[in-house]
Design a protein around this nucleic acid. Structure first.
Lengths: 227, 227
DNA sequence: TAGATTGTTAATCGATTAACAATC
DNA sequence: TAGATTGTTAATCGATTAACAATC
């Protein structure tokens, strides 16, 4: 008789969407995403001159549960007034600080194909304080130079510029074959967050955070629900 | 004394990412997404002439747990051979059938801005059997006509064409203000799945499935992890 | 004060993982 | 047959929701 069977050795699923540590508490990735949703909702309220909001109202806006809103916020402090609710502008400031978007963040985009170009043109990021000021491609063509005023550099310059400009966040829109190689170089150069549009699982050290945006998967899994 | 307090009335969070019913079983949305990931991994294996795969190997490719792979598949049937594993090509066929991507699916794209154009040019969807053959915009400009061979129609023709061509799936890349109005028309015209790039929660009947791709949120929540 | 809403603990729900008998 | 791996049940883990005392 053998002892109790040990679990498959190669079987520790390291879900990349796990959680971050803040001080002592672990913050689930889903909480961080919702923080960002709250920030946007608060922004809309502010635009409409609404000055106070309850967790129930905020939750309602977003189709969430009010207890979840309060609990999410409780990870980071006490921002509300019992019997009253939250001051919109104040809470928004707090959240922007927590998210680290109360400052400008330098961003590079790598891979100036169709999608890359579109993202360079997409105003949404800039509005949020992200400065996409460097683009890279293996080919620096006529049609590339200065897409939307963003200069396009050859990838050979990647490592140097990332370091010199201390770029922390990178948008990755290269072909699948190139992705891991680029990721390795990015990590070495000090990048610690990647918004990855490439349908490839990137192997990176633990401290590097990757968000996968997988258009093909979103699309294909939608078709499951047709009719 | 009052009775036990009832929960906040406006507080039933209807998470749009919940689950679908198939026959009797409820299929979690996360399972459906993974099915699509499995399909892609199997495709890669096939390309490399690999003919068999175990749940452990497949899970390893994707950073998941092998029990999860087996359990996900078990929602839909028994596709493996105990002691052997899965036949790659066979399993892939099964999954494509389950996902409904073993046929061509007509897709329309609404809102031909920067992002919309990029998605029209993006080959990934077409490779998967999605035919984006109609684009719509409130303005039919020179620069629009026939973006990547896809004709651009005026939104006034939306309802008619959706119906006539029985378009089931729509990619939505319109400005936030327009999104809900367009969604209402889509639903009336019979669309049952929307890939929504607009940062707005769409109010639609239960049978309509929406996947939200929220670039701003992905980006902002990444900045939480910087440094 | 009375009413409202927070922050937080406890209860519930659901999803992931371990374990193992069945079986090729 | 012996070894491997499935399908599935039970155990664990984590996230969501309910409930309510504290408090403005």
């Amino acid at each position: 008789m053998t002892g109790p069977k040990s679990p498959d050795s190669s079987d520790e699923a390291q879900n990349p969407e796990r959680s971050a540590v803040l001080g002592e508490k672990k913050i689930p990735a889903a909480v961080v995403k919702r923080l960002s949703l709250y920030t946007r909702a608060l922004q809309n309220l502010e635009r409409n001159k609404v000055e106070k909001v309850s967790s129930t109202a905020l939750a309602g806006e977003l189709g969430l549960n009010s207890a979840q809103v309060r609990k999410d916020l409780a990870y980071f402090g006490q921002f509300g007034v019992p019997g009253f609710g939250y001051h919109v502008g104040e809470l928004r400031q707090h959240l922007k600080h927590i998210l680290g978007t109360d400052r400008e963040i330098n961003v590079a985009l790598i891979g100036v194909g169709h999608l890359g170009k579109a993202l360079l043109s997409y105003g949404g990021f800039h509005r949020q304080g992200f400065r996409i000021m460097w683009a890279f491609d293996v080919e620096v063509r006529e049609s590339h130079v200065g897409v939307e005023r963003v200069p396009v550099y050859h990838t050979s310059e990647l490592d140097r510029i990332i370091r010199e400009e201390s770029i922390e966040l990178v948008i990755l829109t290269v072909p699948a074959e190139a992705a891991q190689g680029i990721a390795d170089r990015l990590v070495k150069a000090g990048v610690s967050a990647i918004l990855n549009f490439v349908p490839t699982r990137l192997q990176t050290p633990d401290h590097v955070k990757i968000h996968y945006v997988d258009l093909a998967i979103e699309m294909e899994s939608l078709s499951f629900y047709l009719r």
